[in-house]
Design a protein around this nucleic acid. Sequence first.
DNA 1: CCCTGTCATACCCGACGGGTATCACCGCGT
DNA 2: ACGCGGTGATACCCGTCGGGTATGACAGGG
Lengths: 291, 291
Amino acid sequence: MLPAMDTLETRELRYFVAVAEELHFGRAAERLGMAQPPLSRAIQQLERRLGVSLLERNRRGARLTGAGEVLLQEGRAALDAAAAAVRRTRRAGGADRPGGPRDRLVLAVKAAASHELLRRLLAAWALEPGCCEIEVLPCGMSEQEELLRDGRADVALMHTPWNSLAGFDSEPLVTEGQVALLPAGHPLAARRSLSLAEIGDVPGLPLARWPTHGTYPPGPGPEIHNQTQLAQLIALGRTVAVAPDSARSWLWAEHAAVPLTDAPAVVTHIAWPPHSRSLPLAALVRTATRL
Amino acid sequence: MLPAMDTLETRELRYFVAVAEELHFGRAAERLGMAQPPLSRAIQQLERRLGVSLLERNRRGARLTGAGEVLLQEGRAALDAAAAAVRRTRRAGGADRPGGPRDRLVLAVKAAASHELLRRLLAAWALEPGCCEIEVLPCGMSEQEELLRDGRADVALMHTPWNSLAGFDSEPLVTEGQVALLPAGHPLAARRSLSLAEIGDVPGLPLARWPTHGTYPPGPGPEIHNQTQLAQLIALGRTVAVAPDSARSWLWAEHAAVPLTDAPAVVTHIAWPPHSRSLPLAALVRTATRL
DNA sequence: CCCTGTCATACCCGACGGGTATCACCGCGT
DNA sequence: ACGCGGTGATACCCGTCGGGTATGACAGGG
């Protein structure tokens, strides 16, 4: 029997994703803990089986073809799905914590976002009859999607328009406007309201840049990694930022918040993987939407 | 190196899904084109690696444990994702039709649903500057989800509340009410409007049952496989059915349609896999929403 | 009580995944 | 110009393991 032309082993996907990300067979092999020749051969076999060229080999590394781009994206999704299958199955069988509670929900939240909402949600959940333990998993700015996809989290709080809800089930919880965060002494800080255009090109006060999926948008402003860093740079009069209303709760004395008239509203959603049949999850979502 | 504890090969998933669906090692092995002993061994290895019991072996077949249920669902999703990766990569590389157009969208539509909308959509698409070939893939009642997930289709017309949009991106296109489809001669056919309760228990005229994901809801009515069959049974005075307004377009002379006051509205959506980066797809969605 | 049908065990073999050594190629340095 | 370094490809070998066949253990039914 020929080796199943229409199916890909996750091993092959892991190999290809590693090569596609490194664009270098040697480094990819090292990352995979194997030697370079078998990796080269595996990718060649993959290309032959698919009947498609995935990489343009250069003397100096490699470049992805269009089909390679597609396989990188789809392959990551498939690997996430396989990883999720393992994690969720182990959890369902109680194999992750021997003897531990098998009803446990992992909730992914951006560190330092939606404090107040989270507090209220956990309080309401504790009063719920069917409640179970909730493990709060703090994560980076755009990490929730991946955590939900690969099964490390069961449910997440996400914020449109920053997070994409594509591929998940979700319910909106709270809508809030956005404010400009300025140094308290700055002339604009005295204004009652501002527009995005007005803060977009203030001389000497470039707009801070947040990472989205690991990469930063282009611009003159500083690259921000966490909220504390941002707070400091604003207090030092080095930058200005756009944030939801609820950011007021962590402002310093040196900060000022001015409502923005034309910034898109931020909606906090509770989101979870589609087709979930978990009863605790359904109960948590119900609790959240009733807050 | 131990054989990668945290990862599942698609081969193992295929095996488990086959066993979980058949609940019988022998039949599953036959379906997989292999002998029973290696299949048994593979499942045992799988259970050991996951540290979880997946099946309760009985002398008379097997039953799924809770963890097994989870792995069945998650495993199917992962297999669909892997199959989609193969199909979409081949399509992107033009390997499916040698020399054929690599820009081609496959649109899944329920046979005989949304005729008029589809006609208008295709007409508008043909006028679009960036238009490409559209292959219309007719499918069963609830088949669109699977076609999108495993990459056989790029985009689909779906109808809530029958189809679930969970896990997809979508845009609503049309909302329509529902009507009762009755034999023309029936007393109720003369009414201006009806309620679901009224047609739910008409003596001698049981409500037809449509399949959802291959299974039929319980009830006394006949099991319907396609629209022609339904039309015939209604004309014969054997059954009554609930259908969207647009069903009027295929009514026979022996049929009558009476608006239902309390049936949920049917919304036709255009839906596609999340995180798509296809430009033709984006253009098609734009065209559809502007209709 | 044996026969049937189920899944598990024992054993063997071939395929193939992976390692080592080496080659072919090209850019770049001196 | 020539050699050197670094890239991916090729050649070859070996051990593992996936799969097949034969058989066992066991329970239920005629």
